[in-house]
Simulated scan of single mutants.
Amino acid sequence: MKTIDTIIFDLGGVLIDWNPEYVYTDVFNGDREKMQWFFDNVCTHDWNENQDAGYPLRKATEERVALFPEHEQLIRMFYGRWEEMLGEAIEGTVAILKKLINHEDYKVVALTNWSHETFPIALERFDFLHWFEGIVVSGEEKTRKPFKDIYELTLNRFNIEANRAIFIDDNLRNIIAAKDMGINTILFKTPEKLEEDLKSFNVKL
């Protein structure tokens, strides 16, 4: 294995906590079964990911309301109250990021599935997002993980050699896609485990 010189971070679930349950738990009065049905059938993960690839939030909302008019109020909450779904920074990972940023040996960038319409909110809230050499935002590129083109774009934009980079993500599907591109990977579980995994690649912290 070549010496690692680049670390690529995912953001949501690795550095930033985001969860629609922060809004809908109260809306459904704590009825987790009803809430899960709504996420499985109406405002689904796949539907939200389509907006991560650049689809307009307003258009997506109106289309979903047309499909499920009886759930109009709940659907409009998804992006109407999106900022309330944004939790706090995952401080243990931010501490690791800071060490890597301060280390001259590493280029540190981010690759995130995120709507270009909501990402400015995160940029304003979290100072550490400005530490990266650059961030590839799926919504701006009109594609997303796990599609091959967004990994290629990231490698090319920042002049990264795949076998000298580590990609950190909390989604196994995205990790598998990066591995297929020849990128070293770490499936994120906790900041403590991330530190161990980075050291296993001889990354200096």
Rank of each mutant, 00 (worst) to 15 (best):
L129D: 04
K2F: 04
W114F: 11
E84W: 08
K145M: 04
F132T: 09
T112G: 02
G182M: 07
W131D: 12
K142F: 06
Y106T: 03
D127W: 09
L11I: 14
T6A: 12
N48R: 09
V27R: 10
E141T: 05
P146N: 03
V108W: 07
Q36H: 14
P20Q: 02
E70G: 02
Y55L: 07
F147V: 10
A89Y: 04
L172T: 11
Y106I: 01
H45Q: 15
W18G: 01
D169V: 06
Y55K: 15
L187W: 10
L67E: 13
V27D: 04
E196Q: 10
M1P: 00
F9I: 01
P120V: 07
N174E: 07
D169M: 05
K2M: 15
N102A: 14
I4V: 12
P69E: 05
V108F: 10
R164K: 14
R173A: 11
E49N: 12
E62H: 00
N202R: 03
F28D: 06
F119V: 03
E88T: 03
L100G: 03
A110R: 00
K98H: 13
A178C: 05
Y79N: 10
E195Y: 08
G92A: 15
E133L: 13
H71C: 12
I7Y: 02
F126P: 02
T6H: 06
Q36P: 13
E104W: 04
P120F: 12
D169F: 00
F132K: 05
E192V: 13
D40P: 02
I7A: 10
N171T: 15
K179P: 09
Y55H: 12
H116E: 12
V23S: 04
H130G: 14
T44D: 03
E195V: 09
Q36T: 09
E196H: 14
M77F: 11
I121K: 07
D26L: 13
D149A: 11
L100T: 09
S115F: 04
M35Q: 11
P69D: 06
F126A: 12
A122P: 01
E70S: 13
V203Q: 05
A66I: 03
K148A: 07
L123H: 08
L153M: 08
G54S: 04
I75G: 02
T190K: 04
K199Y: 12
A122T: 03
A110Y: 06
S200F: 13
E91T: 15
G12K: 00
K189Q: 11
R58P: 13
I121V: 15
L153A: 06
F128K: 05
F147E: 15
A60E: 00
F68A: 07
V203G: 02
F9T: 02
I7G: 01
H71E: 14
D31T: 14
E72I: 13
A89G: 06
R173D: 08
S138K: 06
